[in-house]
């Protein structure tokens, strides 16, 4: 386990005893299987992603097919999660809805992370006037509550898929930019960055090789946290009627439709609410694990 390489000879000019190698694969395995919560989170994420991918093949009914014969039915053998006020199968709507929700949840934080990090690193590394302009811009965006900002843009541009993605992305950029800027300011002080300058590296290379890998941990953690927020935000927008357009399902508008008919049948709300909670929780747990692996200090 802890093999220590002994000095081969006793020459005063060599120093060859080093600590055992922890190994990246071992660390990865440890991260995945070391904690029960991480295993659970990964399993949940995997199930949801598989379901979303296979939606057309595994959903028992057409999510848009209405049936006046079975309105507001409680769960049964035919409809596992019951039906809504139009007689649509809730399970099928949930399965198809997971596609929209997860797509929003994954694409917008990823885009926001890319743009936000670029802005934040630029501001943090160059400082001065560049920093002041970018920081004011970010403050401006931050001053708006993200939901309000999203509603505003959606109201102007309309609720098409990419518009919603753009909306959520813009709403998330300031958070990433701030974290990236603060981390860059800290990493910039590290002697290895000065060493890179002294060695003769160009600025873009320094940023890509020495800054970004060392600020990646908080960004990735933020991303996993905001996958959850994005799903929530999409749900809120759909709930308000400016997200995914009816009759197409997403978890958000399943809740909205369900709310109109809360006393007729609570099943759509319970199902969608549970799904959102599960995904959000599993992404957050996964985020914690990722942070522990990416941080070189805590990775033993």
């Amino acid at each position: 386990m802890s093999t220590v390489i002994q000095p081969s000879s006793l020459s005063p000019d060599v120093d060859n005893t080093i600590a055992p190698e922890p190994g990246f694969r071992a660390a990865l395995m440890h991260m995945i299987f070391g904690r029960k919560s991480t295993v659970f989170a990964l399993a949940v994420m995997l199930i949801f992603i598989v379901v979303a991918v296979l939606a057309p093949w595994i959903s028992p009914y057409d999510p848009l097919a209405q049936s006046f014969l079975s309105i507001n039915k409680p769960p049964s053998a035919a409809h596992w999660l019951g039906t809504d006020q139009f007689g649509r199968d809730v399970l099928s709507r949930m399965i198809h809805g997971s596609r929209n929700s997860l797509l929003f949840g994954l694409i917008s934080p990823a885009l926001a992370a890319i743009f936000g990090t670029a802005l934040g690193v630029t501001a943090g590394y160059f400082g001065g006037a560049v920093d002041r302009v970018i920081s004011r811009l970010i403050d401006l965006l931050l001053a708006f509550p993200e939901l309000l900002l999203a509603i505003m843009i959606a109201a102007v541009l309309g609720g098409a898929f990419w518009n919603i993605i753009a909306v959520i992305t813009v709403a998330f950029i300031p958070g990433f930019a701030r974290v990236a800027r603060a981390s860059t300011l800290a990493v910039k002080q590290e002697p290895y960055v000065e060493a890179a300058v002294a060695v003769g590296l160009r600025t873009p290379t320094i940023i890509i090789r020495h800054i970004i890998p060392n600020i990646a941990a908080p960004i990735v953690v933020l991303m996993t946290l905001w996958v959850a927020s994005a799903i929530r935000l999409e749900a809120s927008l759909s709930f308000l009627g400016i997200g995914t357009r009816a009759p197409n399902p997403s978890w958000g508008n399943i809740i909205r439709d369900g709310l109109n008919n809360l006393f007729g049948s609570p099943w759509p709300i319970i199902a969608a609410g549970f799904a959102i909670t599960c995904v959000v929780l599993s992404f957050n747990l996964f985020g914690d694990a990722v942070r522990d692996v990416l941080d070189p200090e805590t990775a033993e």
Partner: peptide
């Protein structure tokens, strides 16, 4: 110089 380094 004392060769090597302090054991971990």
């Amino acid at each position: 110089q004392i060769p090597g380094s302090v054991p971990l």
